[in-house]
Simulated scan of single mutants.
Amino acid sequence: MPLHVELVSPERTLLSAEATMVQARTIGGGDIAFLPGHAPFIGALAIHPVSIRLTDGREEIAAVHGGFIEVSNDQVKILSDMAELSSQIDVERARRAQERAEEAIRRGDDVTAQAALQRAHARLAASGRPVA
């Protein structure tokens, strides 16, 4: 039996699909993979790509900017304040955001710039582009 996966942001449902595996990174817990039959789980998501292996063999990758993941009864719910599917990522915009964040870090604006840099890296990684 496959997993039913829903990736939801406040604006809309980005993905509702059947999958064989979901990989995510949690805060304080590291990387975790979910397969059918996984024990119930709730975790806080890090700013990082989430990989969803669909039942037809394709892989859908999303840049997830924090949020929560809940797994129960072969249902995976990913709730994020902001998430983008790889096909929807504007790579040039992400590169510009990365450059702005790196410059802000050099000027000493650590906290805000670090979060912006993490988001830019997640977008670039999800889009399949190398993170410089």
Rank of each mutant, 00 (worst) to 15 (best):
M1L: 10
M1C: 04
P2R: 02
E6I: 12
E6C: 11
E6A: 14
P10I: 08
P10V: 11
S16E: 14
S16W: 04
S16P: 01
A17C: 11
A17F: 02
E18G: 07
E18N: 13
A19I: 10
M21I: 03
V22R: 00
Q23K: 14
Q23R: 15
A24W: 08
R25I: 05
I27W: 01
I27Y: 03
I27P: 03
I27A: 14
G30E: 02
I32W: 07
G43F: 04
L45M: 13
I47G: 06
H48Q: 10
P49E: 13
V50T: 12
V50M: 09
I52R: 00
T55P: 10
T55C: 11
D56G: 05
G57W: 08
E59V: 15
I61C: 06
A62R: 00
A63T: 07
V64P: 02
V64T: 06
G66R: 05
G67Y: 02
G67I: 01
G67C: 05
F68S: 06
I69W: 03
I69Q: 01
E70Q: 10
V71A: 00
S72P: 07
S72I: 09
N73V: 04
N73M: 03
N73E: 08
K77Y: 11
K77F: 01
L79M: 15
L79F: 05
S80H: 05
D81E: 14
D81V: 03
M82P: 06
A83I: 00
Q88V: 03
I89A: 00
D90P: 07
V91M: 00
R93M: 07
A94I: 00
R95M: 09
E99R: 15
R100H: 11
R100L: 06
A101T: 08
E102L: 13
E102W: 03
E103I: 05
A104K: 13
A104I: 00
R106V: 05
R106Q: 14
R107A: 14
G108T: 09
D109F: 13
T112W: 15
T112L: 14
Q114L: 14
L117F: 04
A120V: 12
H121E: 14
R123E: 05
A125H: 07
A126V: 04
A126L: 02
S127E: 02
A132C: 07
